[in-house]
């Protein structure tokens, strides 16, 4: 049992280490490790995790680690795999934070960060467009033409935006109120549609 836990920890340590690019860019890398190299999951199971990740909290890497760990060794396995997966992040981010604190103010490190900061702004801006398209038009991506408009969702986005803009509620209360509005509007719409 202990051997299995250590094996899970080390394997997911390696997955975490090679999982570069974040988000969907890392999906093929995780797939290679857990399906091709170790045979821990079938393709079907991996597809299921991918689908589940679209509807549950957390990045797909953590979800895959937890799922494989649970399947092979219960809760202890889930914890071992997840810890293994995040250990490289902790080590590397600590080093980067040290470098940032020491050399971050001037010179090449400052230049690199100045070059990367607008890129992060662009990625956040892109995420805003992608998510608006997804919830309002039910269309993943920003290039597709809208087929229908989900008026319930559009209304929730608008109300939530006003709440955030006017600083009426904090982040978490805004999410909770949005959840309740989604429930209310969609239930009413379903009721009147019959």
């Amino acid at each position: 049992m202990l051997n299995l836990l250590i094996d899970l920890y080390i394997s997911f340590f390696l997955v975490g280490l090679v999982c570069v690019g974040g988000g969907y860019a890392s999906v093929p890398l995780i797939q290679k490790q857990v399906i091709d190299l170790h045979g821990w999951l079938t393709v079907q199971e991996f597809m299921d995790i991918f689908a589940i990740s679209q509807m549950t909290p957390g990045p797909i890497g953590i979800n895959a680690a937890t799922f494989v760990g649970t399947k092979l060794a219960g809760v202890a396995g889930a914890v071992a795999a997840t810890l293994g997966f995040v250990t490289p992040s902790v080590l590397i981010m600590s080093v980067l934070a040290y470098i940032f604190a020491k050399y971050g103010d001037v010179g090449p490190v400052r230049g690199i960060l100045n070059g990367l900061r607008p890129a992060v702004v662009a990625l956040i801006g892109g995420a805003a467009l992608v998510f608006t398209a997804m919830v309002v038009f039910g269309d993943v991506g920003i290039r597709g033409l809208p087929e229908r408009i989900n008026f319930c969702n559009a209304a929730v986005v608008l109300i939530a935006y006003v709440i955030v803009k006017k600083k009426i509620l904090g982040v978490i209360h805004t999410l909770l109120v949005s959840g309740l509005l989604g429930l209310l509007f969609n239930s009413l719409a379903a009721f009147f549609r019959g």
């Binding site: 969702n153 949005s178 959840g179």
Partner: peptide
């Protein structure tokens, strides 16, 4: 419905 509403809230933020 609730999850969808929360996604809309996250989108607004």
């Amino acid at each position: 419905y609730c999850l969808e509403g929360m996604q809309c809230g996250a989108t607004a933020i």
